[in-house]
Nucleic acid binder design. Structure first.
Lengths: 198, 198
DNA sequence: CATTTAACTGAACAAGTGTTCATTTGAAAA
DNA sequence: TTTTCAAATGAACACTTGTTCAGTTAAATG
């Protein structure tokens, strides 16, 4: 308890998140390999050595960013309990995906672009989480098939196709763009629904 | 003419393409910033300095890879004259996109992932070519609207969505995968067609 | 044969890389 | 006030980076 009071008063619980935020932003902007520890440190207002109070190495910094993004995603999905028939659940999933990803463009960018900069073990961990998310969508597609309201020749391929379509939105969406978010949401739901229904 | 004979006999017209091929493969694998000129040179069987007989600098090497990929794409599209009604042209475009991109996964990877490593001018050039390609699809969607056979609330958004879906295929397709290419082509055409038709 | 010259080497340059660690700092605890 | 210790410094480590260029090599030319 004594040291908790100490820690609250200290400022490492501010610096830690600042390191993560800065790293995320810089990596999204320039790519993992192109960003140096000294650049990150400079933006936070530290010397490079001080970063090693917050991460064991550069690789772990990247992995933590990606893992926490995927964990947030899976947690948020689990918290959104989709119910009703397959069509309703597909609509819920589509809405969830868009609303979760759009305000997190840096995380999406990094999580998709920097997979090849992960060590094999770290890659496997992220890949497993991604697979879990994909499976949630595939379950809905299979349920729709069973209900007879969906007609997809291959649920796995359709899953990959839909996720690519939805995630692509994060790559071009701009908050100050031509269309408001609800409008875009409606357009994407229209495309998704029609593409899988009978 | 005399120096043409000289050049044909020399071996720089073999080394040049080897440099490009090697650079493409390594950059697709590890990312532009993570690949050094010495790595590329070593794989070709040269010293790093010799690369500068084939490119003025590293940035131009990347740009040339992306530009020639986009030029090939636009040339191939122009050579494929899509005719008939909008639905037929959309089917032709879908087929074209898949058949062009699937055998070029390294090019696709590099052209989508390394945009942020281009200098501003080079980025603008590639972006313009990409836009031109997107416009070809949007034209088809607009024609379909006019014909009354397509129902897309926004042709621009639908264009981005469809291209993201189709290009996503290149990211997971494996030649030795579960499904043969014609099967996958049929599945994607099914999704595309249904998503935009009335 | 001698000459020419494209192709390449190998060393050098200045700058930057991730990471470690003895040392300093400054605020909370006693 | 003195003690304590998390947090940060700043220098150092060994190595890599893109790029240049005087010099070497070897094959085509005359």
């Amino acid at each position: 308890m004594a040291d908790m009071a100490r820690k609250q008063g200290s400022h490492s619980d501010i610096t830690g998140p600042r390191v993560q935020d800065t790293a995320l932003r810089l990596i999204a902007q320039h790519g993992f390999a192109a960003v140096s520890m000294r650049q990150i440190a400079a933006e936070v207002g530290l010397q490079a050595g001080a970063l090693y109070n917050y991460t064991p190495d550069k690789q772990s910094l990247l992995f933590d960013l990606m893992r926490s993004h995927m964990a947030d995603l899976l947690d948020a999905l689990a918290a959104t309990d989709l119910q009703g028939d397959a069509l309703a659940r597909l609509e819920g999933f589509t809405q969830f995906h868009i609303r979760f990803h759009l305000p997190r463009s840096d995380q999406v960018f990094v999580s998709y672009m920097e997979l090849r900069n992960l060590s094999p073990e770290n890659f496997a961990a992220i890949e497993a989480m991604r697979r879990q998310y994909e499976d949630a969508l595939e379950d809905i597609l299979r349920a729709g098939e069973a209900e007879g309201v969906f007609a997809v020749p291959d649920t796995r391929v359709a899953t990959m196709a839909l996720i690519a379509m939805l995630t692509g939105l994060s790559h071009w969406y701009r908050e100050d763009g031509r269309l408001a978010m609800p409008t875009i949401e409606a357009i994407y739901w229209d495309l998704v629904r029609k593409s899988v229904t009978t």
